[in-house]
Computed example of a mutant assay.
Amino acid sequence: MNIPVILHFLKEVSANNNREWFNAHKDLYEEARHEFENLLSAVIARISLFDESIRGVQAKDCTYRIYRDTRFSQDKTPYKTHMGGYINAHGKKSDHCGYYVHLEPDNCLLAGGSYCLPPKTLKAVRQAIYDNIDEFRSIVENPAFKQYFPTIGEDFLKTAPKGFPKDFEYIHYLKCKEYTCYCHQPESFFTEPDSPERIAEIFKEMKPFADFLNYTIDDFE
């Protein structure tokens, strides 16, 4: 597991984001991809100690293509400048909450949650939070969780979602358009020899949040 190899490749592809350079240096990509899968394998093994659903998940099934979909983007550069892996018992395209590892120079992070939920599922998750607000708050306001994940969601409604009272004391939790959480870490965090253990420790604090979401999402997927 050689994290500097991954970061070096990503810096190089960021500076030379064209097919000619990539094709001439595809060996660098293959080496970086291999090292990233090694990292994910080590993380999966450690997550499996506290989340049995992850046992048997293969690193190669968690990674995303390096090739960008430029069809609807003004940015036509062909390659991503990060490597991401979504560790999810239901697969990386699942609505279920999983564990996401993202390596990108100056923007490395760990994350989790459920993104772009279908409307019926999103409404059900909001209802579950509304009906069980004390339990939800005990999870997301727990200092052990907040030290890594201070904010729930990225994008928010301006008003209360339809069907919920505007004067609900914790309406901000229902305004989330997605239920995600993020933990940014410096590159040095990932280059330490014990990084898989430290990553797993952070994800262990996230698991109650994932369990809360997945209890509802189970009914839809």
Rank of each mutant, 00 (worst) to 15 (best):
F36I: 01
D131E: 14
Y148F: 15
L103A: 06
L117K: 04
A45S: 14
Y64F: 15
K123Q: 15
R126K: 14
E154Y: 02
V43Y: 08
D61M: 03
K60H: 08
E135C: 08
A124I: 08
R55P: 11
L40V: 14
I139L: 08
K92T: 08
L39F: 13
A160K: 01
A45Y: 06
T70E: 10
Y99D: 11
D69R: 11
E31K: 14
V101M: 09
D75M: 05
Y99P: 12
F164T: 06
H96W: 10
F50Q: 10
N142F: 04
K162A: 08
K146Q: 15
P161Q: 03
F164Q: 12
L28D: 03
G113Y: 02
R65T: 03
Q58S: 14
I129K: 11
A59V: 07
R55T: 13
P161A: 06
H96L: 04
H96D: 01
R68G: 00
E154Q: 15
E37T: 15
D61S: 15
L122Y: 06
T121F: 03
K158P: 03
I47P: 09
M83F: 05
R55N: 14
N107P: 03
K158T: 12
T81F: 04
A45L: 14
M83D: 01
V101N: 11
D155Y: 01
E154S: 13
H82R: 13
D27Q: 08
D51E: 11
F156K: 05
F36H: 04
A45D: 14
K92V: 11
G163S: 02
Y148D: 02
D75G: 11
H82F: 11
G98I: 13
R71F: 04
R68F: 05
P119D: 08
Q127Y: 15
H34V: 02
K60D: 11
P119G: 06
K93I: 02
E31D: 13
D95S: 12
A144K: 13
F149M: 07
C108Y: 05
H90Y: 14
Q147C: 09
Q74P: 12
L103G: 00
E30T: 06
Y148K: 04
P78G: 13
K123L: 14
R55K: 15
Q147K: 15
I129W: 13
S73A: 04
T121N: 10
A111W: 03
K60I: 06
P105H: 05
G113H: 01
A111G: 14
V140Q: 01
T63C: 10
N142R: 13
S114C: 07
E52D: 13
L109Y: 10
G98N: 06
T77F: 13
Y148P: 12
I66E: 00
T63S: 02
Y79C: 07
K60T: 05
A111Q: 05
I152K: 13
D134K: 15
L117W: 06
Y148G: 06
A124Y: 00
Q58D: 14
T121M: 12
A89I: 03
V101T: 15
K92Y: 09
K158A: 09
F145V: 00
I87Q: 08
R68C: 07
Y29R: 05
D51P: 02
A32S: 00
A128G: 11
F168L: 12
F72Y: 06
A111L: 01
V101P: 09
S138H: 12
T159L: 03
S48F: 07
K80C: 01
A124Q: 09
G153F: 09
R68W: 04
G112E: 02
E135T: 15
I54H: 10
I129Q: 08
V57Y: 02
